[in-house]
Write a protein that binds this DNA or RNA. Structure first.
Length: 268
DNA sequence: CGAGCATGGTGAC
DNA sequence: TCACCCTGCTCGA
């Protein structure tokens, strides 16, 4: 589930259901019980996201800091019985939010939150983002651009799906070192993320395929994949590229499965 | 039933 | 670079 769009969407959902309200906070699973008791029956002020970090601000300067990691989920919905391993449950009379499998879940002070945010690169989903900060680091690095895009201290919120898709859409070779990337390419990448990621927030899935390459336009079956969206290369290894027809390639880069088209993606 | 996998990140070597 | 953490789901025995 979780790249930056998931967290920003979640911030919106949590605000809709809990901001300005007294919230019951519990830990059905027990692993967060002591901290849950501290927050219980206090008021959520507002929840924000920065990259993949989620910050739920409560009264008395207490911030619930959540990072979903690879397998975490935070499901907001109407009241329902607890199911599975629920680390934290937020609840009102009208809504429940269940946090499962987070990589990180802790109460922070505002100063601690600021320190975390200070380590993060600009987030394409935030209005205060300055892409020059990312460029400054990126164009001085010899690491492959596909690794740099995943580095949350370079820019934040991009994960394995967006990195593969944004590089494909801009025809950039994932292996190109950051210091060989043109400024023009970087501006194209950033602009594309600013365009694509809000769509992900709105729809709760990652769609990157342009109108001329959609299943309807190409007479191909819609993608059937648990990640949901229509994409060009992510998890399409061995399939025909939607643009040129050559086989989508895959390899492990920066510890994650990278997907790309060796014919379409030659730019630097 | 166990193994393997997943849109992430850390800490040890 | 690797092991490992968190959870749930799918697949094959």
């Amino acid at each position: 589930m979780p790249e930056g769009h998931t967290l920003h969407r979640l911030a919106g959902q949590l605000n809709d259901s809990f901001a300005g309200r007294r919230v019951r906070v519990s830990s059905p699973q027990g692993r967060f019980a002591a901290s849950a008791a501290v927050l219980d029956d206090t008021t959520m002020i507002t929840t924000t996201a920065h990259g993949k970090q989620l910050f739920c601000g409560f009264t008395d300067d207490r911030v619930l800091h959540v990072h979903l990691g690879l397998i975490g989920s935070f499901d907001v919905g109407p009241p329902a019985p607890v199911r599975g391993e629920v680390r934290v449950r937020l609840a009102t009379e009208a809504a429940v939010a269940d946090l499962r499998g987070p990589q990180l879940c802790a109460i922070r002070t505002p100063a601690e939150v600021a320190a975390v945010v200070a380590t993060l690169g600009p987030d394409p989903l935030r209005a205060d983002a300055d892409p020059e900060l990312a460029w400054a680091r990126l164009h001085r690095s010899g690491r492959p651009v596909a690794a740099l895009l995943m580095d949350q201290s370079v820019l934040s919120g991009v994960g394995n799906v967006y990195r593969a898709e944004v590089l494909f859409r801009n025809r950039i070779d994932p292996h190109r070192p950051g210091n060989e990337l043109t400024r023009r390419s970087w501006r194209a990448i950033w602009g594309d993320l600013v365009e694509l990621m809000p769509i992900g927030v709105r729809d709760g899935r990652i769609d990157t395929v342009r109108p001329e390459h959609t299943p309807e336009a190409m007479g191909r079956p819609p993608r059937v994949d648990d990640h949901g969206g229509e994409v060009y290369v992510y998890r399409r290894a061995g399939e025909a590229c939607l643009v040129c027809g050559s086989r989508i390639r895959t390899e492990v880069l920066a510890g994650r499965n990278l997907f790309w088209c060796g014919r379409c993606q030659r730019r630097g």
